[in-house]
């Protein structure tokens, strides 16, 4: 108990800064919602798959799935957007995964905001570069 108290006091003496607290809270919330969103979309797609089974063009059996080669299902954003409306289980699941991949990107964006608010421009630059690298990876504009 006593230790807990010291630790709590120590914590408050280390970071009195309320912007940081604010951003921390926001980061927590963004991560939680991002994860829940991804899980909800993924679960919906998964349920659709379990109920409706594989659609034409998907692997039809376990054998087919296991003999699947890398790069068979290469996709692009326009193709994904087009197929969302048809609600194929695979595409719904894909969307869930994409949302999950995007959550860390949002987190870096929030860090960038934090450093802008702190006027710490070296770190604004650093987080901007990290953000760009992530964006390049995520948009798939490299390696294409």
């Amino acid at each position: 108990m006593a230790l807990d108290k010291t630790a709590a006091q120590a914590a408050s003496s280390i970071r009195p800064d309320s912007t940081r607290e604010h951003i921390d809270l926001l980061v927590t919330r963004v991560l939680r919602w991002g994860v829940l969103c991804a899980a909800a979309i993924g679960a919906a797609g998964f349920l659709l798959f379990v109920l409706r089974g594989p659609q034409p063009g998907d692997p039809q059996s376990l054998q087919e799935l296991l003999s699947l080669r890398s790069e068979t299902f290469a996709t692009t954003l326009p193709a994904m957007v087009r197929s969302i409306s048809t609600a194929r289980p695979d595409d719904v699941m894909r969307l869930g995964i994409l949302v999950l991949i995007l959550t860390p990107l949002l987190r870096v964006a929030l860090m960038l905001v934090l450093f802008v608010l702190k006027r710490d421009f070296v770190f604004v630059a650093i987080s901007a570069i990290v953000f760009t690298v992530l964006l390049l990876g995520l948009t798939g504009s490299i390696g294409r």
Partner: peptide, 13 residues
């Protein structure tokens, strides 16, 4: 993950 995703190496099922 982004690179794997668009390459199609993240199989949804």
């Amino acid at each position: 993950a982004g690179v794997y995703f668009w390459r199609g190496d993240v199989v949804p099922i």
